[in-house]
C-alpha cells in the first residue's frame, strides 16, 4: 500500500487465527481450519474499508479479532500507537471506547429485557462518562440523530421494527463517540427500502462524526455504494485489495472476477 502510514487510523499486520474442529463420525479427530491466514489491512482515517467474501471466508472472524473480541494466534493491530493484541484488562477497555461494533441481526443483538435508554446508555456507564443527567442527554441526542425520538427512551426492543432496531444498534455504538466502527453485515437482514435508509444514515454519520468504518459484507452492490476501499477474502486470505472503483472496473484475481460476475442482475444468465 502506497498510502502514508500516518493517514491510517487502524493497521493490522500478519493476523493469524486457527480454529480446531472436531471431525470424523464420532468427533475423535481434530481438523484445523485457518480462519485468518496472514491477513493485513489498513484503514484510512475517515474512510470505509469493505471486507467482502462468501460464507466461511473468515471476514467475521477478522471483525472480531480486530476488536480483540477473540484472541489472535499472532499478528498486531495498531490503533493510536498501541498494539491492541498486546493489551488486556483496563488498558484494552480504554481503547475499546474508540472502537465500536454494529451487528447484523438487530433482533439477536439487543437485550430484550432492557429499555432503549439502558441499551444505548450502557457504554457510558461502563466507561464512566458523565453523570446520570449528562448520560441521559447524550442518549437522547444520539437517538434523535439516528432517527428515533426521546419518546422511545423507555421502550423495549420488541416494540420496534427491524430497521428501527438497527438504528438502536447504531446509536448504542455511536454514543461513545468512537473513532472506528466495525459494521458486520449491518444491512443484510433488512428489506431493500430500509437498507437504503440505513446506508445513507451511516454515510452522513461518518461525515458528521469523522468516523472510519470497516464494513463486513457479502453484498457487492452495497459495498460499491458505501466503501472507498475493498479487501476480498477467500479461505482466510486476502486475495485482492484496492480502491473500490478500480477493483470493480478491473479485478486482478479470477476469484474477484467470478464474485463480481455473480452479482444478480449484472449480466443476463444467457451470457
Amino acid at each position: 500500500m502506497s498510502m502514508a502510514p500516518d493517514k491510517h487510523i487502524l493497521l493490522a499486520r500478519g493476523l493469524n487465527k486457527t480454529y480446531s474442529q472436531r471431525s470424523g463420525r464420532f468427533g475423535f479427530g481434530t481438523n484445523k481450519v485457518k480462519a485468518l491466514d496472514d491477513v493485513s489491512i489498513a484503514l484510512r482515517a475517515g474512510s470505509t474499508l469493505a471486507v467482502v467474501g462468501e460464507s466461511g471466508s473468515g471476514k467475521s472472524t477478522l471483525a472480531r479479532c480486530l476488536l480483540q473480541l477473540q484472541p489472535l494466534d499472532s499478528g498486531e493491530v495498531m490503533f493510536q500507537g498501541n498494539n491492541l493484541a498486546s493489551l488486556s484488562g483496563h488498558a484494552l477497555r480504554q481503547e475499546r471506547r474508540h472502537l465500536q461494533m454494529i451487528f447484523q441481526d438487530p433482533f439477536a443483538s439487543l437485550n430484550p429485557r432492557m429499555k432503549v435508554r439502558d441499551i444505548v446508555g450502557e457504554g457510558l456507564l461502563i466507561h464512566e462518562i458523565g453523570n446520570p443527567r449528562e448520560q441521559l442527554e447524550k442518549v437522547s441526542r444520539i437517538l434523535e440523530r439516528v432517527g428515533l425520538s426521546a419518546g422511545d427512551l423507555n421502550k423495549y426492543p420488541h416494540e420496534f421494527s427491524g430497521g428501527q432496531r438497527q438504528r438502536i444498534g447504531i446509536a448504542r455504538a455511536l454514543v461513545l463517540e468512537p473513532k472506528v466502527v466495525v459494521c458486520d453485515e449491518p444491512v443484510s437482514a433488512l428489506d431493500v427500502s430500509i437498507q437504503a435508509q440505513i446506508l445513507l444514515l451511516l454515510k452522513s454519520l461518518q461525515q458528521e462524526m469523522a468516523l472510519s468504518y470497516i464494513f463486513i459484507s457479502h453484498d457487492l452492490r452495497v459495498v460499491r455504494h458505501i466503501a472507498d476501499d475493498i479487501a476480498v477474502m477467500h479461505k482466510g486470505r486476502i486475495v485482492e485489495q484496492g480502491k473500490v472503483a478500480e477493483v470493480y472496473a478491473a479485478p486482478n484475481q479470477d476469484y474477484t472476477r467470478n464474485l463480481l460476475n455473480s452479482i444478480p442482475g449484472r449480466k443476463s444468465l444467457a451470457a
Partner: peptide, 19 residues
C-alpha cells in the same frame, strides 16, 4: 419506481434514494 431507486447498482452510478 421508489423500490427500484433503493436497489444499489453494481456500478455505483446511481444515488440511493430511500422510499
Amino acid at each position: 419506481k421508489a423500490l427500484l431507486d433503493c436497489v444499489p447498482d453494481a456500478e455505483g452510478l446511481k444515488p440511493l434514494k430511500p422510499i
